[in-house]
């Protein structure tokens, strides 16, 4: 029963809420969509915190997504030890960057009085959860070799089973508790997207590359 909830009920709830509430928030409270940058208030520590965190986490996330989309290719790549080590080390380095980054962000929020002035409880919940996510990820990678392979062989099929509406929790059940926590806190983060500043990465401004430099808006119809 608990397993059903943890590996089927909860993920579905998290994913559904993430999609639905993010859209609702975008439509009804567009003003609240912002990166909520605090660089204006504190600049030096943010350079390390935000820089390391984002570059690290985005590569790690990209790794997760690529292995999710083409698990077979990852397994094939990992079949040669050298390539396996390469993937694992670069993944680990990126994760460590993210770890240093998120710790720096937490130190910053805790020490800069100006940043404290714009810190909400949710900011702390989020940072703590991200720290948990990154540490359990790194710990898993160090303890249970080789993460990239069994992510491709176990986790990816499980995620696909969720996405194709034929959940197979039995793929997760035999895993040790550490990766289980990693997966659970991952879904918690997904759940939190619409309720925290995480919405900022839903509105990453990629369209900038296509739009014309100047934006002119005419009030009257029929004019541009």
């Amino acid at each position: 029963m608990l397993d059903k909830f943890l590996w089927v009920g909860f993920p579905y709830t998290a994913l559904t809420l993430a999609v639905v509430v993010s859209i609702l928030r975008f439509v009804w409270k567009p003003f609240s969509y912002s990166s909520l940058s605090s660089q204006f208030l504190e600049n030096k520590q943010l350079f390390w915190g935000s820089g390391l965190w984002h570059w690290g986490i985005l590569w790690v996330l990209t790794g997760h997504i690529v292995a999710f989309l083409c698990p077979k290719q990852i397994l094939a790549w990992n079949s040669a030890p050298f390539r396996l080590y390469l993937l694992e080390t670069s993944g680990l380095i990126m994760a460590l960057l993210a770890l240093v980054g998120v710790v720096a962000l937490m130190v910053r929020r805790g020490t800069s009085s100006r940043v404290k002035a714009v810190t909400t409880p949710m900011d702390w919940v989020l940072l703590a959860l991200l720290l948990l996510q990154v540490t359990t990820g790194i710990d898993t990678a160090l303890r249970y070799r080789w993460g990239s392979s069994w992510y491709a062989s176990n986790a990816a099929p499980y995620l696909w089973s969720l996405l194709t509406l034929g959940p197979r929790p039995e793929l997760i059940q035999p895993l040790p508790w550490l990766p289980k926590i990693h997966i659970l806190s991952g879904f918690t983060l997904i759940l939190l997207i619409p309720f925290t500043r995480l919405v900022h990465f839903l509105v990453v401004p990629i369209f900038y590359y296509w739009r014309k430099p100047q934006v002119v808006i005419w009030n009257r119809k029929g004019l541009r």
């Binding site: 509105v203 401004p205 369209f207 900038y208 739009r211 100047q214 934006v215 002119v216 808006i217 005419w218 009030n219 009257r220 004019l223 541009r224």
Partner: peptide, 11 residues
């Protein structure tokens, strides 16, 4: 502006 939030009014 990356988001295209700033604009010049035509009129």
């Amino acid at each position: 502006c990356p988001s295209g939030a700033i604009y010049k009014r035509g009129e």
